[in-house]
């Protein structure tokens, strides 16, 4: 190894230097602090508003907390959140798979890209509410209603995100793969998919947030369970604290998915960036 070539270190993960668990967690806590301050600020402002208004339309924090405890105590919250998450997962995975497949085909064939462009534009402009209503009418109260609604709601914006990612794939790497005669599977696995990881991750996040908006409408209009249905029930009985409690419970679940699952996946898929900068 030459003197000029030995500036980099082998890719070995750096360990925290002493101090145990606290040193390992300190950066994460520091990163979470601004978000926590924001939440506390919003809660404080809400409490001030509730005490000022003294209205059942603006319940105070204690009342909302009481509702959350009531929903959690009977296991109802867990059951209903589970039902909604199951529907989101099915529709989300199917919509994601369809968007990736169509995106790949569109990237390979300009003709196919032009062929599906009107459908993508239509999908981007039609509100989720319309898909929810139509699917309730077409499919009734079965599982097909939420799944198809979510697919129709998330596939078009996902397709746009994935197409952008595919356009950003480095043509020099594609040439390299061609020269070294990588198989099609190797090109997709080792060149194409890793190149579009940032786009796929943002696509998954986008899909989750859109799917949540669609599923609430579907459950509200056409189903007899799930978080959307429960929100409507609380709304019908003018229980604002109940509406807020369901919203907060689901928000916590989504935050757990983001910070637990999504960030874990992101860390794993982008490990090379961190290790490269050591």
């Amino acid at each position: 190894m030459s003197a000029t070539d030995t500036v980099a270190l082998p890719g070995v993960a750096r360990q925290p230097e002493g101090g145990g668990a606290w040193r390992a967690w300190a950066p994460r806590l520091r990163a979470a602090l601004p978000g926590a301050v924001f939440c506390l600020l919003v809660a404080g402002l809400w409490e001030v508003l509730a005490r000022t208004k003294q209205s059942p339309l603006v319940p105070d924090l204690a009342e909302v907390w009481g509702e959350i405890l009531r929903l959690l105590a009977g296991g109802m919250a867990l059951e209903q959140v589970g039902i909604t998450l199951w529907r989101i997962s099915l529709g989300g995975i199917a919509g994601f798979a369809i968007a990736v497949l169509l995106g790949l085909f569109a990237a390979r064939s300009r003709l196919f890209g032009a062929f599906i462009r009107p459908a993508v534009l239509l999908g981007l402009t039609v509100p989720g509410l319309v898909w929810a209503l139509l699917c309730v009418i077409w499919f009734g109260v079965g599982l097909a209603t939420p799944v198809v609604s979510i697919i129709l709601g998330i596939a078009p914006p996902l397709l746009v995100t994935i197409s952008q990612g595919l356009r950003a794939v480095d043509s020099e790497l594609t040439e390299m793969a061609h020269v070294f005669r990588f198989s099609r599977a190797a090109r997709i696995r080792h060149v194409l998919l890793p190149s579009i990881v940032p786009f796929l991750l943002s696509g998954v996040r986008l899909a989750f947030s859109l799917a949540w908006k669609v599923i609430v409408l579907v459950e509200l209009f056409g189903l007899s369970d799930g978080v959307g249905y429960q929100l409507n029930s609380e709304f019908s009985s003018q229980n604002v604290a109940g509406v807020l409690a369901w919203t907060l419970i689901f928000w916590v679940v989504m935050a757990a998915i983001e910070f637990g699952l999504m960030q874990g996946m992101e860390n794993r898929l982008t490990r090379w960036r961190r290790e490269s900068s050591l």
């Binding site: 190894m1 000029t4 030995t6 980099a8 270190l9 082998p10 890719g11 070995v12 290790e275 050591l278």
Partner: peptide, 29 residues
């Protein structure tokens, strides 16, 4: 000259080292 660097990622290497990997790749086949 890259013994010990097998597990490293390319961006963690210098330009010269990366080109050494490219040479090894071309002749490895």
């Amino acid at each position: 000259g890259l013994d010990g660097y097998q597990a490293a990622f390319p961006l963690g290497l210098s330009g010269g080292q990366r080109q050494r990997v490219a040479l090894a790749r071309a002749f490895s086949i």
